[in-house]
Nucleic acid binder design. Structure first.
Lengths: 434, 434
DNA sequence: GCTCGACTTGAATCCTGTG
DNA sequence: CCACAGGATTCAAGTCGAG
């Protein structure tokens, strides 16, 4: 097991402030510092931890290539020890593909965990306390969301998980900051803790919000792979997973659970398989026990973790180092029709897979069209000439039509969609999927 | 069928403004008028609609006892035609036990959406769901929440349903206004609309927030009854129900759906059975097609509905008048009961495979019990109420009993174990319930 | 009266590259 | 910036008519 590379980072060299190569301006960050109890500056030392000796890069050496946004500047597969907001501000802007955030829903006031449920204080003070708490929590939320937004690539997406104590505030703030919600997702706990007092419904789920950086972002969503792994039906917004228990749950020396809210790896796996590609960079600003890192490594994604508590970071480091990445061929995406290179129908004609003058029909043989040498079709019994799609639409009187699946060709007495010919050509050309 | 009592209310007598007895100051209401597109003042006439002639109370007569908070001042089992916020401000403060609110979701839809077969999706494009900005929506939300808060009894609770488009804003605003969230609840849709373009997860759920007026409220939660109707297991925060379709869905004259977002009665039944007692007053400020009213009447709760669209109010009135309240003895709150085996009899009731009030017998017809709306049984000739298993055991004087095989229902002169109904439901649902 | 299959429909923030 | 065109994309319930 490897320890967090604290000493190597040169602890005494810079006492406060941000590590030099992280000191670049953060244009989209909060305009003024937001002071949050519990996240207020301790002596923040951005200590880079290395997954293995060969990858260990000391901060001093890395200052050399800190100017640009080059991927090399990223502390990949490392755990940054320090405050989430400050550490994110030190990352190059627009550099990560996905942020997964499991923020605290408790307001860490004075280092003491204070649950909303326990804040049953004097009714007279209640209103003020509530206002103060919510305002503080909102400021904290705004600050880390802005820092995450800055770190994200334009087409990157963000997952946040929370419960009813905080998720509404987080979701509203996300909308206010311009994030574009793609889904809210429900993690249904197969084995939730019962409600002991019998005063409420069993709190049996948590909520994830998945959002793009903006409404027009071209985000990653591995739709076809997810569907294929789900009995060929779309994956829904409600996911069923057990809690993290048993062997998977990290324990401390005394056999007690190391972290109070360790998430199950299955949940993170679904997240990463949904919204990232192998090699993508995943940032987790509230790294905790490092589930995100462990799953990222297993699925051959890169990660950047940020964690304030050294004990958690140490345990996460050891945990991740023990993970064996899956074989690469276990992670190859199944061919996606959407991402396949385009092949024009004219190419099929040029390459001889369809002969000019050949007759195409629809599946039932009701409509007929003739293939022309330039790759257009002419509808039988009319003057209409155009693309396979246009002519298919015209034939049916429809507004649109996918000519590849509409038009069929007859081979050896059997009728195939011309999409079959296209697939054949793609195979010949060895262009499986770019 | 009875029509909305528009004429009786004296339409021409007051052209604009608020009905006199509703003009009392609303101390907690929004300090200034909130102008919302689509909810902007039309000629608002608070027309009281009466469920039956004997109950019809004209506004003019009711001014006499409008000063206090006496229950008699409430327009019980009526539909108020007008703006939600204004109408709520006219109700006596601290007068209702439960608010169920299904506010506009602010969907922000863009262009039209087509299914893969080129058919057009019938989107929610109504005026009432259009807001200029989040700020406008927030102001609207704040105003109606404050009005609802004012109308609630100190120990009353509030349910709000929404989607990711609006629920985070609503939830945060609720917290800001002092509501105390008890649960967030997920309505898992058994048959959601798919994501046709394969760009997101199937949006397969909606969220309800259940909140008390304050953290120290002594709210109603029928824990024992819910548990007894749920195989003696606590009801979780994720509920599975189908969409409102088929016969239950109200149609207009042309056979098209009357209301774009009619909620299933099963969902409302669970809400009312969870958080109200028979005779309680339920306020629904966005009444729509009147599902809340129909279920309230069936379960012998009183309702107050507020609806701006006269066509909806008319249809709701007729719908509710056609509802036959359940026998009172099917609704008495059961004594505390605990312990017994598995699976959910209440689902059979909610889904209509067993009718509340129906009589169950054992195989030989020696013992009889009556089905209650919450999925519990009451033993004939006794005070014993509990789960199918518990009551079956009590009937025989046995320690335990499998209610599924013990209790029988008569269909077409033949007696089946209720397990047959469960099997039928499972077949219908494809065991999608997990 | 039954089964089978075709058809309809539901609170939806639902495409992308080229010119 | 817009316009245009290629072409990729759906699940569970319900109704209804045919046989």
């Amino acid at each position: 097991m490897r320890s967090v590379a604290k000493g190597a980072a040169g602890r005494t060299a810079r006492q406060l402030g941000v590590c030099p190569e992280y000191a670049e301006p953060a244009p989209l960050a909060a305009p003024r510092a937001v002071t949050v109890p519990g996240t207020a500056p301790r002596a923040v030392e951005p200590v880079l931890t290395a997954p293995r000796a060969a990858r260990a890069v000391s901060p001093a050496k890395r200052t050399r290539d800190a100017a640009g946004v080059a991927p090399g500047a990223l502390p990949l597969d490392q755990i940054l020890l320090g405050d989430s907001i400050q550490m994110m501000a030190g990352l190059p802007a627009g550099s990560v593909d996905l942020v997964f955030a499991d923020p605290p829903y408790n307001l860490q006031l004075g280092g003491e965990l204070k649950r909303p449920d326990e804040s049953l204080v004097d009714a007279v003070d209640d209103d003020w306390d509530r206002f103060d708490s919510f305002a503080t929590y909102d400021a904290f939320t705004r600050a880390w969301l802005l820092a995450a937004r800055r770190a994200l690539k334009p087409n990157g997406t963000l997952f946040v998980i929370g419960s009813y104590h905080n998720i509404f505030r987080v979701g509203a703030m996300m909308q206010d900051l311009g994030f574009w919600i793609l889904n809210d997702i429900v993690w249904r706990k197969a084995n939730p803790m019962p409600n002991f007092r019998g005063r409420r419904f069993t709190n049996a789920h948590e909520t994830l919000i998945w959002a793009a950086r903006s409404a027009d972002a071209k985000y990653t969503f591995n739709y076809e792979a997810l569907k294929a792994g789900n009995e060929d039906v779309q994956v829904r917004s409600d996911w069923l997973f057990p809690l993290c228990t048993g062997q998977e749950r990290l324990k401390d020396g005394a056999g007690k659970k190391l972290h109070p809210t360790q998430k199950p790896e299955a949940l993170l796996a679904r997240v990463l398989l949904s919204a990232t590609k192998p090699g993508d960079v995943v940032l987790d600003p509230f790294f905790g026990s490092g589930t995100t890192g462990a799953v990222a490594r297993r699925l051959r994604r890169s990660f950047i973790g940020i964690e304030r508590e050294e004990a958690y970071a140490q345990a996460a480091r050891a945990r991740i180092d023990a993970v064996e990445p899956l074989p690469e061929d276990a992670l190859i995406a199944p061919p996606s029709a959407r991402e396949a290179p385009r092949v024009a129908f004219s190419v099929l004609v040029e390459r001889g897979l369809v002969t000019p003058g050949a007759e195409l029909t629809d599946a039932k043989g009701r409509f007929r069209a003739v293939v022309r040498a330039d790759g257009t079709l002419s509808l039988a019994g009319g003057q209409n000439v155009g693309s396979i799609h246009r002519v298919g639409a015209l034939a049916q009187g429809a507004e649109a039509c996918n000519g590849w699946t509409f038009w069929h060709v007859e081979e050896q007495g059997r009728r195939h969609p011309i999409d079959v010919l296209r697939a054949r050509l793609r195979a010949e050309m060895g262009i499986a999927a770019e």
